[in-house]
């Protein structure tokens, strides 16, 4: 099952089995944002508490879904917690670039939010554990599972 191991890297299964930052935060001061994948019913709920300067002071996640969506949610929460707004924006761009290289072929232009991907700066960002998710792009129907948490985060950070 070599193909499967490309998708389900050990680090992904680890985040799936032991998700980080699960739970809720009091609203306010946190904001609650929900994201849905209508195709499979996956649901991500984010509680994000921002500092005055926009830094992610704290984040918690709830919801349900497949291993890819749950692991991606967990890894996202670990990657952005305590980070400045600029660092978070760069990470989102870099992650979406990682996914959109292949997604661009599948999704009609303008519908996947690709306008905010910056391949130049994205290539310079070290995504660390998140790079384990790049195997997902070989399984096109699962890309939406991986990007759900990130789209929901963008929604949470939108002014």
């Amino acid at each position: 099952m070599s193909g499967l191991e490309d998708l389900y890297r050990e680090i992904i299964l680890d985040h799936y089995r032991a998700p980080r930052n699960r739970g809720e935060l009091p609203v306010p001061p946190a904001h609650k944002t929900e994201g849905f994948n209508p195709l499979c019913g996956d649901e991500v709920v984010l509680y994000v508490e921002l500092d005055d300067d926009g830094a992610v002071r704290d984040i918690r996640t709830a919801g349900h879904g497949c291993s890819i969506s749950q692991a991606s949610t967990s890894m996202m929460s670990a990657a952005v917690k305590g980070k400045s707004r600029a660092e978070v924006d760069t990470t989102i761009r870099a992650f979406k670039a990682l996914m959109s290289i292949h997604e661009a072929r599948l999704v009609p232009e303008g519908s996947s939010g690709d306008s905010d991907t910056d391949e130049g700066s994205a290539a310079e960002v070290n995504l660390g554990d998140l790079e384990a998710l790049q195997g997902v792009v070989k399984f096109p129907v699962r890309i939406k599972c991986a990007t759900l948490a990130w789209n929901t985060l963008q929604q949470a950070l939108a002014p």
Partner: peptide, 12 residues
């Protein structure tokens, strides 16, 4: 195990 994960393994 989520249905999508089952289906993915079954596909292999």
């Amino acid at each position: 195990i989520h249905a999508h994960d089952i289906s993915q393994v079954l596909d292999q």
